[in-house]
Write a protein that binds this DNA or RNA. Structure first.
Lengths: 225, 225
DNA sequence: CAAATGCTTCGATTAGGATCGAAGTATGAA
DNA sequence: TTCATACTTCGATCCTAATCGAAGCATTTG
């Protein structure tokens, strides 16, 4: 017997197909109700309720009661990151879902990872910030340079509330498709939110796919130049 | 049904206690035989054989036949990283192993993560390299600065074979205990190897714990200063 | 208040897979 | 060739946990 945390319990939680489907659905970053998650996983409400209780007990989900609804979401970005890691291993092992479908390439190009942009475009954003010296990396949390702060503010993101919040401003997250780092944390979320706001991009309903409009893609490229 | 890799299959592999024990044992980075792993997990050889076949099929383990032994090891650092991530979630959820024991603090201080140094000391090393500008981070793979190359060579690491190898020289890895980045990749492995060589540190038998000698700890601190 | 919606708990069924004994295969040593 | 070691395969057993129907609880709406 070895010392250390018991990973089997947590992994077993993710290891059930129904639960894995629910967790995958929550990777959009949206909070979903028990009913929605049951539908997503293709099981009855009773079964879903039991699964959700387990996931909640295991610390993978947070629960927000609102009226007669119970909204579940991923506990935090750490959970999302482990799920992305598992996706990486699964993709490599060739354990792709039944039908890769036409969405697969779109998913690799740009997708929501909990609440920030991942995929090829997510990596592009992160790398551009680095090479333009707007971001400097040190330990897990990157920090904005003074140039970076100006840049972000000019782009229309209000930094003050983000900086005072408990959540780290900049964090790094590893892609399963790109196998490279991209920007997470409050700033990562703020960027994606601003892209939506400017109508540069939008989320495909019920999926993690993010599509850039023609104008949005051009503006995005110009921003990174 | 969502698009994307099937994480349930992989997670289920890790989700069985016997298999999780084997994987945890392999986090030392040492290759182990089926018999050793069976003993480690507390199961018979037949059962272990079946589990190992599944882990191998799932791409989590690599197999090296040597004589009448079959040596299993983790497929690569990606697998180790996901396991570390799971440990982080498990530790947080309070799902610690039966008895934390006196090894737990030692494990947090310094331990082997696949083949490089993790824990508090691992983070110290990484941060010192960064703040002394011996290492610069960009995307997932950090790179040695020219000062860094001199430093590493002076320390007694032969860089040439590492640089020409297929394995990335510097990679980053996230701790479950420290929740911070530390140095992995060929260079991370080389550092740990050199620490052993200089007798600054040694591995506790059968565990992931790394203990620094008094002289070793002093020398290590001096190196990072 | 009653009715409807959203979710949980209980109980019974069922299926998958973890386990080990026994027998079989492969490699090495004598 | 014979024996021993290292491991795999087969088959039977057993147990956990996933599942859903039915009933119960909570909250909102009318």
């Amino acid at each position: 017997m070895k010392a250390g945390p018991n990973i089997a319990a947590i992994a077993a939680l993710v290891g059930d197909p129904a639960r894995a489907n629910m967790l995958t659905a929550l990777m959009t970053g949206h909070a979903l109700t028990a009913t929605e998650l049951a539908h997503e996983a293709g099981i009855t409400l009773q079964t879903a309720s039991s699964h959700l209780a387990k996931l909640h007990d295991g610390g993978l989900l947070t629960l927000r009661r609102q009226g007669r609804h119970r909204y579940f979401s991923l506990a935090d970005n750490d959970v999302a990151q482990v799920l992305e890691g598992l996706m990486g291993l699964a993709a490599r092992a060739g354990h792709l879902r039944a039908r890769p479908g036409p969405r697969e390439p779109a998913l690799r190009n740009a997708r929501v990872c909990y609440d920030h942009l991942a995929g090829d475009q997510g990596v592009r954003l992160y790398e551009a910030l680095l090479s333009n010296k707007l971001l400097s990396v040190r330990s897990e949390t990157a920090t904005l340079t003074s140039h970076g702060k100006t840049f972000v503010t000019d782009f229309g993101v209000n930094l003050a509330p983000l900086e005072s919040a408990r959540r780290p401003l900049c964090r790094l997250c590893l892609d399963w498709s790109e196998r490279r780092m991209h920007l997470a944390g409050a700033l990562g979320a703020a960027f994606l939110h601003r892209f939506y706001e400017l109508k540069w991009a939008r989320r495909e309903d019920g999926t993690r796919v993010v599509t850039f409009s023609k104008r949005g893609a051009e503006a995005f490229s110009a921003l990174l130049a």
